[in-house]
Write a protein that binds this DNA or RNA. Structure first.
Lengths: 341, 341
DNA sequence: CAAATTAGCTTAATCGATTTATTTTTATAT
DNA sequence: ATATAAAAATAAATCGATTAAGCTAATTTG
């Protein structure tokens, strides 16, 4: 009951394994193998359910039909949705996914890249932490296709799919200003990743335009949610004058709502809120919370399209694409959204 | 600048590749290779950063150091958290993860199992849909370790890690009864998976005990959330007499809250709610929603522990474990939780 | 001191495919 | 009938590791 190999097939049919291989790889015509033989082999293979050993195949051809997907944290709803969509599209195109969560940890990520190389993944989809420029550069130099998303490495010239982060927070902040809010804070994770810097800048630009002073809190990420909530609580206690806040990520936003619940701060009565990313938590909050919705499907679609294109052009040197998608400000809780002093 | 192979190392050091291989696999002592040579090889390998080609290694040894993880849907927070925890533990033990979402689709799952076999994964972690008994049976027959979680296949004798589903809903329903609710509904996805049947049974048992009649709505799963919300809305419109409801999964629960929002039904004023799974949506709802919290970390821990144990005992035939963990009923919104007619 | 061990390495087979180079068979032209 | 070209299939090399079996020189044993 052992697994069948191509030799078994060849022996059984009394042909050479070369012939079987050619037929199975659709090169029968090209190698002018007789139609009757092709038929006979195909039928038998079908009958016994033979499937080539993909390890052996990969070893010989150098292709593994696998894509490495590196997200920040697969349990974060944003990355989980993206992963799901990418998974679907990848499978449909004959690729499997190996994934991992980087935790934005540079050292861990470098090890993971090395692991992926080791496994000979054909292409890389990465939401990169800082500090992996050299490793990515090396991948590119070795002709391996890399697509980044959510953020990019400014010093590395590769394809990436992002959203218009700066405009998103700029627009959200302006929305608050137009509603009459005057003390608008910005709470985010401490990070110098491109998307974070841009979100911060968008907020600051909007405030500057209206000559308001920025009030920013950058929280150091921690696995333990308590360590996020505590400093945030301190921040809001200290800045009692704030009447609105923009949260830089869904995670910060969710924690923020928890803080407000604990402190008895009413949203949006006492504090207007806009969070990055739009999820059930924000939709179902009462009244619902305004949020910056990322076009998750579009992001995933673009990422996989760009990667597949690279995988299919062996030459490699197609020019790099930078795709910037638009977000959608979901304005909610409008009834009480207008600030009335 | 090509990738180094063991032959390159051997040639460079003017020893045979066998020797190099033995040394790298820690069999130097056993194969009585001189200490100085061991040192020389180790040092050189370190220096040039040589890493064995894992495909070749897997082809030869039959081990791929990969675990296949099959969840229902990686974008569902329950599965995403589990996946994250399993990923961490697996990496720590030298295993990589290939994952996929089954969508509870039998045919798709069978193809995915075949894909995993193809890639020679060493072990399987599966949240199984119905109808894959034969495939799993075959895996077991071929000596491949399989651990199931969240549910199991009654006809297949393999390890699994679950929670006490029946007691969980029984307990939740009794809680509602004790609070004075008299018309308690149960809304869930239509499914005959073990965990779903048990959850339903727990609800029915509790009602029977108090001689109440069950009011059940089973919704056919659909990728499009609208197709879940619509029938649910019809159900609640039809059963205006309901004063409480138990939701069978987090997804149904979230949709339920959306329905109540739309219909203007106050929770828990007009309708007391208990949902399976405990997530931010329920915690942050105002007032927060009572939920049945699964011990996600414990589940993941047990799953990976059982699997690793199986992977490390080549003989295979360790007796199967069925691990049943306890859930935690997170009682919330107590202030308005007591039903006062 | 010859025979038997043992230490220290190497040769060659193997895993299961793909692919290049080559041979055998058949058909066509001269 | 024979040389030549085309068609059909195969042998053998290769990918990069692991490992069983084998060889040589040094050491031990009787």
């Amino acid at each position: 009951m052992k697994k069948l190999s191509i030799v078994d097939i060849a022996n059984e049919l009394k042909v050479s394994k070369t012939t079987v291989s050619f037929i199975l790889n659709g090169r029968a015509k090209e190698k002018r193998i007789g139609e009757d033989l092709v038929e006979r082999v195909t039928k038998y293979v079908e009958e016994v359910g033979y499937k080539p050993n993909s390890l052996a195949k990969s070893l010989r051809t150098g292709k593994s039909n696998t894509i490495g997907l590196m997200v920040e944290d697969i349990s974060n709803p944003f990355f989980a949705s993206i992963a799901r969509l990418i998974e679907d599209r990848a499978y449909k195109n004959g690729y499997k996914i190996i994934y991992c969560s980087t935790d934005n940890d540079t050292q861990k990520t470098r090890e993971l890249i090395s692991m992926f190389r080791d496994r000979h993944v054909d292409g890389y989809i990465i939401a990169p932490p800082e500090g992996i420029e050299d490793d990515v550069e090396q991948l590119l130099k070795d002709g391996l296709p890399v697509v980044m998303f959510d953020r990019h490495l400014p010093k590395v010239n590769t394809d990436y799919v992002e959203i218009d982060n700066l405009f998103s927070t700029y627009n959200a902040t302006r929305h608050l200003i137009q509603q009459g809010y005057k003390n608008i804070g910005f709470v985010t994770f401490a990070s110098s990743q491109t998307q974070m810097l841009a979100r911060m800048q968008g907020y600051k630009d909007a405030l500057k335009e209206s000559r308001f002073a920025p009030v920013v809190k950058e929280i150091v990420f921690n696995q333990d949610e308590e360590m996020i909530i505590k400093p945030m609580m301190a921040f809001f206690k200290k800045h009692q004058d704030l009447d609105a806040v923009v949260f830089g990520t869904n995670h910060v936003g969710t924690c923020g709502l928890k803080v407000f619940n604990t402190l008895g701060i009413k949203v949006p009565g006492d504090m207007a809120v806009i969070s990055f990313d739009d999820y059930d938590v924000f939709k179902l909050y009462s009244p619902p919370v305004t949020a910056i919705a990322q076009p998750v499907e579009e992001i995933a679609d673009n990422v996989i399209t760009v990667l597949l294109k690279k995988l299919n052009t062996k030459g490699g040197s197609t020019a790099s694409h930078s795709i910037i998608l638009k977000t959608n400000l979901q304005i909610r809780g409008s009834s009480s959204g207008l600030k009335i002093d």
